[in-house]
């Protein structure tokens, strides 16, 4: 029972072993990881990179919630066949606002790093609703309920605020308008639509992603996210063009 009544020599041995394990184990990790925290000094920068809109962020959270990352990577490697199949290889800067990253480790389905705008919204909705309607041999689960589940928007400002705490530069204005921006992005005719463009840039796509302008569903959010993948910045396309021009 006594926590303090033991012999000092025995105590020092166990503590010594503990410290030895910590030293041996931690230094390797620190030496290897520490330089990565200064890596932004050397990697390419993307000054015009835009942020995820509240709707896209909500879609990203649905992507995480459903475990899509278990079967889809978002990291095109620097290999010829991957570039031919999926597009320009992924750059570090492209996921700099991804908390957490979704690079993935397995491709039971194809890579999604550049899936954005490759397929129409209708295709995505039909595919998510039942993949086998579009790709007969697909083994992807059906996500039919996304189309009927209302998206929760009342706490989106808190989400943006938390994102800002970990380093994503959302402005006060973006945080204050998070819920209405989410609604307006999927309803381009809404009066608040101009604000979305003003806050997130001209490249932002405003569409009724799920085909129902008046309803804001989880399908809207997920499709909006999928359609922006690979389009937050054109750094990857540009840098490859530069490399080719230089040769």
């Amino acid at each position: 029972m006594s926590l303090f009544g033991f012999h000092y020599r025995l105590e020092s041995k166990a503590i010594g072993l503990t410290l030895g394990i910590i030293a041996a184990a931690s230094i390797g990790g620190m030496v290897e990881i520490a330089p990565l925290f200064t890596i932004h000094q050397t990697v390419e920068d993307a000054p015009g990179m835009r942020l995820y809109t509240p709707l896209e962020l909500a879609g990203r959270n649905i992507y995480i919630r459903e475990g899509c990352y278990a079967c889809h990577s978002q990291m095109i490697r620097t290999l010829r066949d991957e570039v031919d199949r999926y597009g320009p290889y992924s750059l570090a800067v492209e996921s700099k606002y991804d908390h957490p990253m979704l690079w993935g480790s397995k491709r039971t389905g194809p890579d999604l790093a550049r899936i954005g705008e490759k397929y129409s919204d209708q295709w995505h909705v039909a595919h998510l609703n039942n993949p086998r309607d579009v790709v007969p041999v697909s083994v992807m689960p059906a996500y039919g309920w996304l189309l009927t589940t209302e998206l929760r928007t009342d706490d989106l400002d808190l989400h943006l605020r938390a994102q800002r705490k970990v380093g994503v530069p959302y402005t006060d204005n973006m945080i204050a308008n998070a819920a209405s921006d989410a609604y307006a992005q999927s309803n381009p005719d809404a009066p608040q639509a101009d604000g979305v463009i003003k806050r997130y840039g001209k490249a932002t796509t405003l569409r009724a992603f799920d085909g129902q302008p008046t309803r804001l569903t989880e399908m809207d959010a997920l499709v909006a996210y999928l359609q922006v993948l690979g389009h937050l910045t054109d750094a990857a396309r540009k840098s490859i063009a530069e490399v080719e021009a230089g040769q």
Partner: peptide
């Protein structure tokens, strides 16, 4: 700042 990164990498190696 660039030096800092180079230093860390050199130190690691």
């Amino acid at each position: 700042m660039i030096v800092e990164h180079a230093f860390l990498v050199g130190f690691s190696k």
